[in-house]
Every structure is written in structure tokens, then in C-alpha cells.
């Protein structure tokens, strides 16, 4: 009979053990497959309709396909990130998983780090494979030049946006206990993030006679809007392309700083949400 002798276990070993457990859950739920399939379907759609059409916003060929894909993802990624993270802690609390895990010698930070790494990785990894794969496919199959600069920009913006809503999703998951209320909060966050794009806001401004600074502030605080502007920061700065908020910011900040701000703000929002969630998890009841 093997005698169970415990030895001191290093922090990375414990985080890795928890991450393996979480990854098993992600793979079983087919979340990774769903994300990959969705990204691939969108990519196929935009390749099918995009490569042979005329230039859009100054982008042609593969750059246009990537622009269209990323534009669609800017709206979709928040929803995927919210649904991929928003239920994790709330469900683990409800089904007894936290009670079992925290009877083991692990810290709340270790658990939270493992969950964050796996969930963010599950959302981002398929994208990291798909976008360069798409560009290389376009080069091989259609003899299109690979737009490396735009590709890098699209990947960075997507990562920032995913992080933003991963942090917000985890914040909701830690704070709210009932799963139906969690779903409601996630839906509200997503709807607001899509509704508060500047085109929607201009409609509000006209209908409710909102002052322009309010509209600009609301749009500027929306990570989806800022990510969209970061994506388009290399485009010709026209009102039609960027929208009123983007046009104003482009003229005020310039293309480079618009990109920097457009990536930094979603990262900041995500980090704020993540830190708030971690603080709550550290200080509150686990069950």
C-alpha cells in the first residue's frame, strides 16, 4: 500500500493542477470547439464574399477580409467572453466545486489565476491560430499579399477586447450568486456595449437631444467602441469610416495614439474588472 506522504507543493504546480482541471471542463463543454468553429465560419464567409469585391475603407484583398472579420468579431467577442467567463465562479460555487477545491491547500488567488488563464486562453487561442492562418491561406490560395501590419493590429485589438470582457465576466461571476441573475447582467453588459457604439449614440443624441460631450464620453468609455477605433486607426480618417467620435478622436490624437488609447482602454477596463473580482473572491464567503 502506498502511504500518502505530503510534500510542500510549489505555487506554479498548484496553479497548473487547477488549470488542467479547468481546461478539462472547457474541453468537455465544447466551448473551445464552438469558438473555433464560429471564428472559422466567419472567416470562410468573409473570404467567400470579400476577396473579389472592391476596396472598403481603403483596405483591399486580405486586409479587407481581415478588416471585415475583425469588425464582426468586435461585436461578437464581448458576447463570447462574457458567456465563457460569467458563469464560471457562480456555477462552481453552486455545484459544490469551490467547497471541494478550497478544502485543498490552494489559495483563492491560485484558483482565480488558473480560471482566468484557461478561460482567456480558450477564447484567444483559436483566434491566434485563425487570423494568421487566414492570411497565409489567402496568400497561398489567392496569391494575396499578407497584410502583416493589419494582422498584428487585429490580433492585438481582439486580445484587448477579449481581456476587457473576460475581466467584466469574472467580476459578475464572483459577485452574483444566482445563475439566472448572472445571465441577465451579462446580457445587459453586452447590449450596452453594442448599443453605445457611436452610430447608435448619434441616434440617441438626435432623439433625446443629448449634448455632444455626453455622447462622446459614453462612446469613449465603451471598450467595444475604442477597440473598433483602434482597429480603424490606420484607415483614412473620414467621418463615414470612423463615425463622429472616432473622427474627433483621430483628429485630436492622431492615428498612433488612437490605436494606443483604443487598446489601452479595454485592457484597463478588463484589469479593473478582474481586480475587483479577485478582491471580492479574497474577502467574501466561498459558499
Amino acid at each position: 500500500m502506498a502511504v500518502g506522504v505530503m510534500t510542500a507543493v510549489a505555487i506554479p504546480t498548484r496553479v497548473a493542477a487547477l488549470a488542467r482541471l479547468e481546461l478539462g471542463d472547457v474541453l468537455r463543454s465544447r466551448w473551445l470547439i464552438f469558438c473555433g468553429a464560429l471564428y472559422a465560419a466567419l472567416a470562410a464567409l468573409f473570404i467567400g464574399i470579400g476577396l473579389h469585391e472592391s476596396a472598403v475603407m481603403g483596405f483591399t484583398g486580405m486586409a479587407r477580409v481581415l478588416l471585415s472579420l475583425t469588425h464582426a468579431l468586435v461585436v461578437l467577442l464581448p458576447l463570447l467572453a462574457l458567456t465563457g467567463t460569467g458563469l464560471v465562479v457562480a456555477r462552481a460555487r453552486g455545484d459544490g466545486t469551490l467547497e471541494l477545491l478550497f478544502s485543498q491547500p490552494i489559495t483563492r488567488d491560485e484558483y482565480f489565476s488558473a480560471v482566468t488563464l484557461v478561460r482567456f486562453g480558450a477564447l484567444f487561442a483559436p483566434l491566434l491560430v485563425l487570423m494568421p492562418g487566414l492570411a497565409v491561406f489567402g496568400a497561398l490560395a489567392f496569391h494575396q499579399a499578407v497584410p502583416w501590419g493589419f494582422l498584428a493590429r487585429a490580433i492585438v485589438v481582439s486580445a484587448a477586447l477579449l481581456w476587457s470582457f473576460t475581466g467584466l465576466g469574472l467580476a459578475v461571476s464572483v459577485r452574483v450568486r444566482e445563475l439566472d441573475r448572472v445571465m441577465m447582467y451579462l446580457l445587459v453588459i453586452w447590449v450596452l456595449s453594442v448599443a453605445l457604439l457611436d452610430l447608435g449614440l448619434v441616434g440617441l443624441m438626435l432623439q433625446w437631444q443629448l449634448p455632444a460631450p455626453v455622447v462622446f464620453t459614453l462612446a469613449g468609455l465603451n471598450p467595444v467602441e475604442t477597440a473598433r477605433l483602434a482597429l480603424l486607426s490606420g484607415a483614412e480618417p473620414s467621418l463615414g469610416t470612423l463615425g463622429p467620435v472616432g473622427f474627433f478622436l483621430h483628429r485630436t490624437l492622431g492615428a498612433t495614439w488612437l490605436f494606443v488609447a483604443g487598446v489601452t482602454w479595454p485592457l484597463a477596463v478588463g484589469t479593473f474588472g478582474w481586480l475587483a473580482a479577485r478582491r471580492r473572491l479574497r474577502a467574501g464567503d466561498l459558499i
Binding site: A2, G4, V5, M6, T7, A8, V9, T13, R14, A16, A17, L18, R20, L21, G24, D25, R28, S29, D95, G96, T97, E99, L100, Q104, P105, I106
Partner: peptide, 21 residues
């Protein structure tokens, strides 16, 4: 717990965090 994880995964995770064989 109503864990979706398999028995093997849970046993391995507990062994790893406790430093057990």
C-alpha cells in the same frame, strides 16, 4: 460536487496540490 470533471482528473488534481502520490 456535481463536477463535470472525471474521477481521474479530480484525483490527479488533489494529488498534485497535496503533493501526494
Amino acid at each position: 460536487p456535481r463536477l463535470g470533471a472525471t474521477v481521474g482528473e479530480v484525483a490527479r488534481a488533489v494529488a498534485a496540490v497535496r503533493g501526494l502520490d
